[in-house]
Design a binder for these strands. Structure first.
Length: 945
RNA sequence: GCCGGUGUGGCGAAAUGGCAGACGCACAGGACUUAAAAUCCUGGGACCUUAAACAGUCGUGUGGGUUCGAGUCCCACCACCGGCACCA
């Protein structure tokens, strides 16, 4: 493939500068309190030395990439798209004088390494390390300006120790609805009967009000109470406490894949089958760790308004949270002999105004009361139905959505507004997990209820009149006016909702409620290659087991060494195989689940701030400087990554961050101020890149043939960052040619020929020195620039600067192409024009720019200041001002000609000039000019009739 | 079904309501070369006229509208991509 002649010796230039940046730690970012390296270009630029304080440091700019999972397949061309965009901006911001934090790391826990371990017995750490090494090589070969001293990997013990530590924080916190924030579990108030024995007098008074006890009686009471306490209350207190923690245990149905012998996350299940292997997945209840993310639903929703994310992304998160306002209403079960708690069915509805139209009720098949209310005659039918639906997966339930199914329980409920007896059905179109798991069915004004009612011939009563009389009221689900609704009649929907809700509250039949689709986060996986929980299980005096957190001093909890990484035959996680490890803590057994891959990525952006800190997850000063006090924007200034993480990662990370914020461990409510999703890069055929399609492009191949600068430039030139766009290797050649033209603008052609000849015969080792054979073009001088040259330069500065601010990389590159196309025609090339141009090019093609920058300086006997920290060129508008401008002339709105007029010409002059144009005259002849529209400096339009 | 995004030459794309197609790819012609590659120069939306050009007409998914003027703003629709999907 690489047969054609190189445009320029990138194969020597790129490694040369990558090594130089590495050796000088050019891109090292400095924290407050750190001692700057002597002579570091950052120190020179900002006139700093020695130990720096937060106030001495310039403004921070935190620019972050979503760190990759280091897969065995290596980098694909999609990764460098976002990485290049952020790198360009990082370099640009450095030139603008910011203290830029631009780190990289590895989301290295994950299933592939584990599955490889199951197959081969190779420890996942080995696979992971090899993959990280390969990713590092590939990423470094692209010349990104990462501060590698801050590299983190979620699988590093020094990292996941703090992931476990944060888990302990979650475990040891509860969400206080009164203060509306997470608090240490110690602030939890227990119900009266569970309070600690802190005040005997109070206790004695409460158990025997009005009595005065003798000393003896009091002692007896204390003894008895203490014994009773020891028997029961400690356990009850613990259960109460555990039920409030942000990390808690529940029995939840999970996606169990018998074939793989593991539980899968929802996102790993596609169409009811495992993403890997395509094996069937069934629902199975298992003991699981959950995180109480639902407590943060409102904050996660409200704070979206404070961050600069795309509307579509915010919308996805809003949908995920699924907030809906409505009311809960209690329906009395008719002819009911049950205890009070069981005698009512509570429903959630967003349309309480339609209550008069409720003609039946539906319970989810899993609803608690199904067994209780079903009548003798209906028993077998109901049992049958429940059993049938239980066997269906979620997918089957929705797939069969077109055809509603259900069965009558034989029972009735009383509609609280009109006392009507309405039948209670069960149907799987009602989900147990949303709302109360029961609904009031209003078939006239709900599509699903309407369908169901038609199928089972249930009554349909109109209670909403559509605003347009022609609209059919049957199945009308929007807002209208209440009818057939007693005291609501005539009210528009919004008001009817308010009135009925107030009425229900007054009668204690219901209340206004807010419901969320969001569920708590299932946080445990039955895997080996994840963070072990810092949790042990103990057995209480009653023989029941309970969980307990390990102390911070027990961190990190390391995973055991195993021979076999498969889950046990009984379906227990692989960690259960390590008998010794399991029983390491005296009197306790370790938790054998591990955390999901999302755990590590929930806080890595914080670890970067202070990656080496052994004493805490992130130092306070570093956190405060980078996240809050040091810059214009709170949190990460710019976060770039793919849409595939639009909900999960970005949602989970926001949640953790908010908990840490509540616990006073971070200083902002949101982690990522601005977020941009880069678009997908498709294959050359316009299809998604995939091995099976055979359209995958390997960056290594492109780099080898065209170099890193061309690769970077092409990825940015393809189109707007956020769009999906197809790859074109021909397109790479185009920008590669552009870089070649830049090179030829600067170098002497004869010397390059000499270099090429020398290179073919040279030893490999000495090839780097051969670069010295290449000389600068003699036309480059320190002569003054012409106005035309300055105009070309400043037009370019303006466009590139504006486009970088707006992240329009493709048009910035085209502006540089325009400059080069013009500069190629110059006989004299003033150094004062070429230097600023190289600065503009530097963020995009840093290796080539550095090389030429160094040559320009050395040729003119100067020592080159670091290009990476050279102040960004200033645009001078004076250089673009012209004495004459071209104006388009339209006749009746159609373009006919252009005229040249002085830039400050008045309207009369312009009108005369426009009418004088020959081409225009042909359209004016025989007609009168009725109106002249002149937009200063833009155009002229003559209206004729 | 709902939500979001995108529709512009052969292709990737560009255009604060003001000369549509900058820049690049591919293509064609020319220069250089023994030749090729590389490089440099030139051309190019469609149609119609023409020896050629000039001029002209049409042209930004479709149909309307606002405006002196619309790729851009408004209304309705179509297609493709992404997300959600019985959430009461």
């Amino acid at each position: 493939m690489a047969s054609s002649r190189r445009q320029y010796p990138f194969h020597l230039i790129e490694p040369k500068w990558q090594q130089a940046w590495d050796a000088q730690q050019t891109f090292r970012a400095w924290n407050p309190g750190e001692v700057l390296a002597d002579g570091h270009p950052f120190a020179k630029r900002h006139g700093l030395s020695g130990k720096v304080t937060a106030t001495q440091l310039p403004k921070k700019f935190y620019i972050l990439d979503m760190f990759p999972y280091p897969s065995g397949a290596g980098l694909h061309v999609g990764h460098p798209e976002g990485y290049t965009a952020t790198d360009i901006l990082a370099r640009y911001r450095r030139a603008c004088g910011f203290n830029v934090l631009h780190p990289m790391g590895w989301d290295s826990f994950g299933l592939p390494a584990e599955q490889y371990a199951v197959k081969t017995g190779q420890h996942p750490r080995k696979t992971t390390e090899a993959n990280i090494a390969n990713f590092t090589r590939q990423i470094k070969s692209l010349g990104f300006s990462y501060d590698w001293s801050r590299e983190v990997a979620t699988t590093d013990v020094t990292y996941f120790k703090w992931t476990q530590w944060i888990f302990l924080k979650l475990y040891n916190s509860w969400f206080n609805p009164e203060t509306n924030r997470a608090e240490p579990i110690e602030t939890l108030e227990y119900p009266k009967e569970l309070r600690l024995i802190s005040d005997w007098n109070q206790l004695i008074y409460e158990s025997a009000p009005g009595e005065i006890l003798s000393k003896e009686q009091e002692n007896d009471f204390k003894k008895e109470f203490q014994e009773d306490w020891n028997r029961n209350r400690e356990k009850l207190r613990r259960e109460f406490r555990d039920s409030k923690r942000l990390a808690y245990v529940s029995e939840a149905p999970v996606n169990w894949c018998p074939e793989l012998g593991t539980v899968l996350a929802n996102e790993e299940v596609i169409d009811g089958k495992s993403e890997v292997g395509g094996f069937p997945v069934i629902r199975k209840p298992m003991r699981q760790w959950m995180l109480r993310i639902t407590a943060y639903a409102e904050k996660l929703l409200a704070d979206l308004d404070t961050i600069d994310w795309s509307d579509s992304l915010k919308e996805m998160q809003r949908n995920w949270i699924g907030r809906s306002e409505g009311a809960e209403v209690d329906f009395q079960i008719a002819d009911c002999q049950l205890p009070i708690a069981d005698s009512k069915i509570r429903v959630f509805t967003t349309r309480p105004d339609t209550l008069f139209g409720a003609t039946y009720m539906v319970l989810a098949p899993e609803h608690r009361l199904v067994d209780v209310i079903t009548t003798e005659e209906q028993l077998s039918a109901v049992e049958n139905y429940c059993e049938h639906t239980a066997r269906k997966s979620d997918l089957e339930r929705t797939e069969l959505a077109k055809e509603k199914t259900g069965v009558w329980t034989g029972a009735y409920a009383i509609n609280p507004v009109n006392g009507e007896k309405i039948p209670i059905w069960i149907a799987d179109y009602v989900l147990a997990s949303y709302g109360t798991g029961a609904i009031m069915a209003v078939p006239a004004h709900d599509e699903r209820d309407f369908e169901f009612a038609k199928k089972f011939s249930l009554p349909i009563i109109q209670v909403v009149q559509p605003p347009d009389a022609k609209t059919d009221w049957q199945g009308f689900c929007e807002n209208g006016t209440s009818v057939n609704s007693g005291f609501l009649d005539g009210l528009p929907t919004a008001e009817a909702k308010k009135k009925i809700t107030a009425w229900l509250e007054e009668k204690a039949l219901g209340q206004k409620t807010i419901n969320y689709k969001l569920r708590d986060w299932l946080f445990s996986r039955q895997r080996y290659w994840g963070e072990p929980f810092p949790i042990v299980w103990k057995v209480g005096p009653d023989g029941e087991s309970y969980h307990e957190a390990l102390p911070e001093s027990a961190l990190p909890v390391l995973p055991p060494t195993l021979e076999d990484y498969k889950p046990t035959a009984s379906g227990e996680p692989p960690l259960a195989r390590a008998k010794e490890w399991l029983n390491e803590v005296p009197g306790a057994v370790r938790e054998t689940n591990t955390m999901p891959q999302w755990a590590g990525s929930c806080w890595y952006y914080l670890r970067y701030l202070d990656a080496k800190n052994a004493g805490t997850f992130v130092g306070k000063d570093a956190e405060h400087y980078w996240m809050k006090s040091g810059g214009d924007k709170p949190g990460v200034d710019l976060y770039v990554g793919g849409t595939e993480h639009a909900v999960l990662h970005l949602f989970y990370a926001r949640f953790w961050h908010k908990v840490l914020f509540d616990l006073d461990l971070v200083s902002t409510a949101e982690p990522f101020f601005k977020l941009v999703n880069q678009g997908l890069i498709l294959g050359e055929d316009g299809q998604k890149m995939s091995k099976s399609r055979g359209n995958v492009v390997n960056p290594d191949d492109i780099l080898k043939e065209f170099g890193a600068d061309a690769f970077r430039l092409y990825e940015m030139f393809m189109g707007p960052l956020e769009m999906s766009k197809p790859w074109s290797t021909k397109g790479v050649e185009g920008v590669y040619r552009f870089l070649g033209r830049v090179w030829r603008l600067f170098v002497d052609e004869k010397s390059e020929t000499a270099f090429e000849q020398a290179e073919t015969t040279a030893e490999t080792q000495s090839r780097g020195e051969l670069l010295d054979l290449i000389l600068l073009d003699g036309a480059i001088t320190d002569a003054a620039a012409t106005p035309a040259q300055l105009k070309a330069l400043h037009a370019c500065i303006k466009k590139v600067t504006e486009d970088l601010d707006g992240m329009r990389f493709n048009t910035a590159i085209s502006a540089m192409m325009v400059f080069i196309n013009e500069a190629m025609t110059w006989q004299n090339k003033p150094v004062t024009v070429l230097k600023p141009f190289l600065q503009l090019l530097a963020p995009f093609a840093p290796h080539l720019a550095e090389e030429l920058w160094a040559r320009l300086h050395s040729t003119f006997g100067q020592i080159a200041p670091s290009l990476s920290y050279a102040p960004w060129p200033k645009f001078d508008p004076a250089q673009l001002i012209e004495s004459e401008i071209e104006l388009p002339v339209q006749v009746n709105g159609k373009f006919r000609d252009t005229i040249k007029v002085p830039v400050d010409a008045d309207n009369t002059t312009i009108e005369v000039a426009a009418k004088a144009s020959e081409k225009v005259q042909t359209f004016l002849s025989g007609k009168t000019v009725k109106k002249v529209i002149i937009v200063p400096k833009r155009m002229v339009n003559l209206i004729v009739g």
